[in-house]
Simulated assay, not measured.
Amino acid sequence: MDRARALGRLKFSDSGFRVMTLASALIVLVLLAGVAISLFLGAWPAFREFGVGFLFSDAWSPPREKFGAATAIYGTLVTSLIAMLIAVPVGLGISVFLTELCWLPLRRPIGVAIELLAGIPSIIYGIWGVYYFRPVMQSYIQPFLIGTLGNIPGIGFLFQGPPFGYGVLTAGLVLALMILPFITAVSRDVFDTVPPVLKEAAYGVGATTFEVVGNIVIPYTRVGVIGGVMLALGRALGETMAVTFVIGNATKIQSSILAQGTTISAMIANQFADADPGLFTSSLLALGFILFVITFIVLAAARWLLASLEVKA
């Protein structure tokens, strides 16, 4: 009888735990669906008024109630691309250095310093970008790019225009600094999971550190590395305050990455407080819904890629 009661209590506890975890998972799904539905309902007047052309128009004139998302979408994608092109190789390089080359007493202090960057509020990055990084861009980096890369046929159009300091490139560089800790921390942790015997065997047959990293460490941890990169990309796509401070907030698409621009998050942050009810507010909500969809697509693609890599492994 005591045994039966004990088993009954354990079964009840297990069932209760299962129900609680299921409820927690369903709450997340309900909240996610609620956010998507509320954004879509708020954006529907803009979608109904402008149709598919809303995605491809760079018009943004609140007085004339003409709105388009192309400039914000372009700025979001380009700044994120610039940030990833810089942060991914640098972050992986730092991770390799910390796990394979760094003097042991320095590994922890350097690792903690990198991770502390992730805890800095984005507005601090924005203030630093405006008062310290923008003058450097305006006085040194942008004039150098204009005078060198700006004269190369084929890519010169990307580096033309006056050196204001603000711009898409500046925002991309600040974003790169912000997402660097995410890539570095995740990559370092997954690099540490590589069995030492694999690396020792490679070194034993005469492999160099470069060969060990390229043929052992990276292939063994590719799923975790891609996960960290996608986490950083999600942060870059949705960043608001730091980008708002340094991108310039122009509402027209320009081919030069030195020119001022905007992103979806920056446009919403700048204009939502002053938006009149109607198409203006609906258009801003439409931008939010588009950002939601872009982020969802990116994360879904990342999950599909990770699943395919796990199957191959």
Results as ranks from 00 to 15, higher is better:
270 N>A: 13
237 L>H: 00
252 K>I: 13
244 T>L: 14
222 R>Y: 11
250 A>F: 09
241 M>K: 00
231 L>Y: 00
230 M>Y: 09
268 I>P: 01
249 N>W: 02
255 S>K: 14
244 T>Y: 06
243 V>R: 02
218 I>N: 10
233 L>Y: 08
231 L>K: 04
228 G>Q: 09
221 T>Q: 06
258 L>Q: 01
214 G>Q: 13
272 F>L: 15
266 A>R: 07
237 L>S: 03
211 E>H: 15
264 I>M: 11
271 Q>W: 00
261 G>Q: 02
257 I>S: 05
205 V>E: 11
225 V>Q: 09
260 Q>G: 14
237 L>P: 06
206 G>I: 03
242 A>S: 09
239 E>Y: 01
266 A>P: 08
232 A>P: 07
222 R>M: 12
266 A>N: 02
240 T>Q: 00
224 G>K: 11
267 M>C: 06
268 I>S: 06
235 R>L: 07
274 D>S: 13
227 G>Y: 08
248 G>Q: 02
253 I>P: 05
236 A>F: 08
241 M>E: 04
270 N>H: 06
254 Q>A: 14
256 S>K: 10
236 A>Y: 02
250 A>N: 12
254 Q>D: 13
204 G>K: 00
234 G>C: 09
249 N>D: 11
260 Q>W: 02
252 K>D: 12
204 G>I: 03
261 G>S: 11
252 K>E: 14
218 I>V: 15
229 V>E: 08
240 T>V: 09
262 T>I: 05
226 I>P: 05
251 T>N: 12
204 G>W: 01
261 G>Y: 00
214 G>K: 14
240 T>H: 01
248 G>P: 12
254 Q>W: 09
263 T>Y: 03
210 F>S: 15
273 A>Q: 13
217 V>L: 02
213 V>L: 05
259 A>V: 07
240 T>P: 01
237 L>D: 00
214 G>R: 15
252 K>T: 15
259 A>N: 10
268 I>D: 03
240 T>S: 02
265 S>N: 05
275 A>I: 04
232 A>H: 04
239 E>M: 01
216 I>F: 11
224 G>E: 01
275 A>C: 07
273 A>H: 12
275 A>L: 05
257 I>E: 04
257 I>V: 14
